[in-house]
Design a protein around this nucleic acid. Sequence first.
DNA 1: CGGCATCCTCTTTGATACTG
DNA 2: CAGTATCAAAGAGGATGCCG
Lengths: 225, 225
Amino acid sequence: MGVRSYRQYCAVAKALDVVGDRWTLLIVRELLLQSGCRYTDLQHGLPGIASNLLSERLKQLEEHGLVRREAAPPPVATTLYHLTEAGRELEPVLAALLRWGVRFMPTPTGDEAFRSQWLAFPVSELLCDGEPDDPPAAIEVRTGEQPTVIEIDGGEITTRLGAAATPDLVLEGDAPAILGVLFGMLEVSDARTLGLRTEGSTQVLRRLRYPDLPTPPHRAEQVEE
Amino acid sequence: MGVRSYRQYCAVAKALDVVGDRWTLLIVRELLLQSGCRYTDLQHGLPGIASNLLSERLKQLEEHGLVRREAAPPPVATTLYHLTEAGRELEPVLAALLRWGVRFMPTPTGDEAFRSQWLAFPVSELLCDGEPDDPPAAIEVRTGEQPTVIEIDGGEITTRLGAAATPDLVLEGDAPAILGVLFGMLEVSDARTLGLRTEGSTQVLRRLRYPDLPTPPHRAEQVEE
DNA sequence: CGGCATCCTCTTTGATACTG
DNA sequence: CAGTATCAAAGAGGATGCCG
């Protein structure tokens, strides 16, 4: 079993001893996005992982006290995986990686998987409501397998899986085009040439702010209509 | 060559595609601590790394634009490795890992390597001067191969390799004992039983604060004499 | 089905030795 | 000093099998 350690008396190395193995931090990502996951939910949220690896990593995470198994009551009748407090405390690590990794998002390779729940992390971490006094708004995002709603209400921005009752704006298309307009890396007109389809008013996109994305790229005035 | 990717359109996964390989983040740590390293300096700061791996990782880091090679002028006559701006921007990632990893420091396994320069990161990231109006103070730390000085001056805490002219306190012994008293995880009396030797007044340790170390452990009153 | 365990192949790593 | 070369061991990836 992988008891491979750097053997350095350094907190960074110690942290990497525990979460530095391949796939481990992505498993934590999935459990942060939806604590109380079934094994199959994890497999779905981690496209490409081998089943034996997921199984082994979960065991290691449990041994290290980052993950807790819960035997779900009869209606579900299966095991649910939760993060412990120590596991949730990895969120700043994931957030820092996210902020550093956004620089690679504008140039997708085209063969990448996408899952709707992955939207939640960048939205909550990077987006702000620039007009907190405006009335609540909802953007429905249709990409990946399930629709997602971004709800903007009094300065708070949240996401949830599912459809919106009366969205102000619907964005449909590939994830790169949608992420591009949400995070100001693409103008709507450019995103349309990448296959973005919209319903409703793109005005609501003007409310979105990304306070500390480095070099807020080429978003002069991205809104029309 | 390792062009292994998670193939997920997610900024965290993209970041890990670049810096998720074994040793990579520790190489970045070394270059953050001392940009302008020679190959041998890196080998020394990364005990346990295989030479071929260091070589390959440096190539990958250069390809990804995190590291820049500099041909040093005649007096040195060798290659120096520097972080680029993109590489330095990984500091928040390392800082988050450090904060998460400190929980494993109180229970060292005993077979760990230690390097003096590793002190700089936790000191600057975790320690504050609780008495910024007190006169400057210096703590000399003798562990690892080279002595290090922690300088406290008007609320600023810095470290540098080398000896202090007139240290207020000298700490000598194993890294766990020294880190233990610096970060409030050990009382001085307990650290002495672990082999800590001191010269000067341990009063200066009372100035040190660790604002957001979770559960500031068992430091009631660690100072005597 | 959900939750793995096994088997097999391929890649990555770690340790050591060697070279310009 | 700054790497390459070599090679055995460990880990990752993929397919399939098993069991409640």
